[in-house]
Design a protein around this nucleic acid. Structure first.
Lengths: 326, 326
DNA sequence: GCTCACTCATATCCGCACGGTATCAATCCG
DNA sequence: CGGATTGATACCGTGCGGATATGAGTGAGC
């Protein structure tokens, strides 16, 4: 029983995703026959049939399904090993923080400042990726820690909640729904969110094949060196354009909404829309003191911010107890 | 940037563990020169120095340390993928449950029975491994779910507590400590546990290189097909012999202790010894309905058992409120 | 129903990368 | 200073991965 090789995993994943030997071979930059042979050898090696194939159709067997899943995580693990080693070998290692621009509840500057006061502080590198890219970035070693809102797929991650805040519905000001006095999720059936999921099914998008898109610029960085990660296919500016046009709607944490007030867009309360929690997430096996220091700094800042918000809220309540939301 | 290969990871891990190219090459079943070259190529590929070597000494760089860790988990991930695929391809797949013999708080028969009544039930295969082998078995795909007592290293695992029970100190009946009216952890300084750790530092043993020992038989299986996993270097029988001889002491959950009352061994309460919790653990990314069914069955059984124990305890308290422990 | 197009499998060849042997170079020890 | 130990270098052969050419089975169209 020699040993499985990474190349075989890559080949299998390609075929399993394409369900077509020719296209998979093309994607892998090789010819089709050696790919067929490689898959055959892999199956022989495992003693298990992974793909059911006729000359016209390729399908995954049950064993193939589980192997696809495990092969993906194994591939992630080896690329993560490579990336983290490369990063750790840098003369001045940095802490790479993945987040989606603006989705920091305004805490980021304070967190970064508090972190820099920690003993284990390092230069911070911000990876501004699209929503849903933070978790893969942690898994494949591009990032050391991530700041992101629930819900998300937290497999294999340690998590520390920072603060919970309600979300608002962002929609075109002239949308009929904007005139309603109260809304609930059921009213949004048929509307679509920026990622294409229907609005009445608020969760993470189905995990399809990971796409890799082109480059794109991103709004102003709060601080630190900024690197474009897997760039957002739709950045917030474009999303707001689409919202204004009425073609999509979106749920936004109040902290994000309050930064993007503009004509043509209305924010509305949705009764049964669950709140979101901004959390820190990092690989469970992280032994990095810098990550620990960042978590310490961030939780301290969040705690303070939450206390401030509470007193603010109290004051607001006193001044205008029943003021309607926007 | 071609791609890291499993072979390179195996090589590096061997060298990093041996800190000696010759021995590592021997362990890998190859000559030393190609190993040296492979490591050099790996470092060149990563652009990072992993090992600091003179002609007389080999040491890990900081980057090497992190890469060693990640390489191990990556290797685990690929062997897990292979094993799980092989297992999923079996004509009659089974649910492989890892546990240490006797450390089931007596729940196992009932859990297995309840599980068999579940819709998603499968034949159960018990892997009776040594303490500390359950977690690796989950990670490398030998087991689908594990039953084990806290504390343990729960990296990358989902966990469901079943029941918490106090632990007793097992020691030789003629041990001076056995005559003491009360004990605390500090009294045990200098004593050693079966795994070699000092008794006053109750945690998991340091993760050294994984050893693979010889075969060995194991006590009567409760049910289902039984397979010897990584066999216990010291099974409970031998451990009790050593305890009787006074050379070691051990902490045992009351459920285990009550099954192994024998002359020559005394059980004593230790005031500040934290209790242990029997938990189920399984890979976080498991999508197996059988695992879910097992968790359901086990939690139900544990809940019932805890309720029973509570009423028993109440009765016992009524009958003999101040009865001394053993 | 025959044919064509499509797609996966087989056959054969080739180049290279991995591993082996021989040897060198550097460091530690007596 | 010499022998022993240990990692690095040089060189060579072979096995494996990849390419090209071709076969075979299947669904679609006329």
């Amino acid at each position: 029983m020699s040993e499985l090789e990474v190349r075989q995993l890559r080949y299998f994943v390609a075929v399993a995703e394409e369900l077509h030997f020719g296209r998979a071979a093309e994607r892998l930059g090789m010819a089709q026959p050696p790919l067929s042979r490689a898959i055959r050898d892999l199956e022989r090696h495992l003693g298990v049939r992974l793909l059911e194939r006729t000359t016209r159709q390729v399908a995954l067997t049950p064993a193939g399904e589980v192997f696809l899943h495990d092969a993906r995580t194994a591939l992630d693990a080896v690329t993560a090993a490579a990336r983290r080693a490369r990063h750790a070998g840098q003369p001045t290692p940095s802490l790479r923080v993945a987040l989606k621009a603006d989705f920091d509840a305004g805490l980021l500057p304070r967190i970064l400042a508090a972190f820099q006061r920690e003993d284990a502080a390092l230069p911070v590198e911000l990876l501004l990726g699209g929503r849903g890219d933070q978790v893969p970035a942690l898994h494949d070693g591009r990032a050391d820690i991530a700041l992101l809102p629930t819900p998300f797929d937290n497999h294999d991650l340690d998590v520390e909640p920072l603060l919970t805040e309600p979300r608002l519905l962002a929609l075109a000001a002239d949308d009929p729904l904007a005139a309603r006095s109260s809304l609930c999720l059921a009213d949004l059936a048929g509307r679509s969110l920026p990622d294409g999921t229907p609005a009445d099914r608020d969760g993470r998008p189905p995990t399809t094949a990971r796409t890799q898109n082109g480059r794109e610029q991103s709004p102003s960085p709060p601080r630190g060196r900024v690197v474009e990660a897997q760039p957002t296919p739709l950045d917030l500016a474009k999303i707001f354009n689409l919202i204004e046009l009425g073609s999509i709607i979106m749920f936004l944490p109040v902290s994000v909404a309050s930064r993007h007030r503009r004509l043509g867009i209305a924010y509305r309360n949705v009764g049964d829309l669950p709140p979101t929690t901004l959390v820190l997430a990092w690989p469970q096996d992280s032994r990095s003191p810098a990550v620990a220091a960042f978590v310490r700094a961030a939780t301290a800042v969040a705690k303070a911010a939450q206390a401030d918000a509470q007193t603010d809220q109290d004051q607001t309540d006193q001044e205008a107890p029943q003021r309607a939301m926007m």
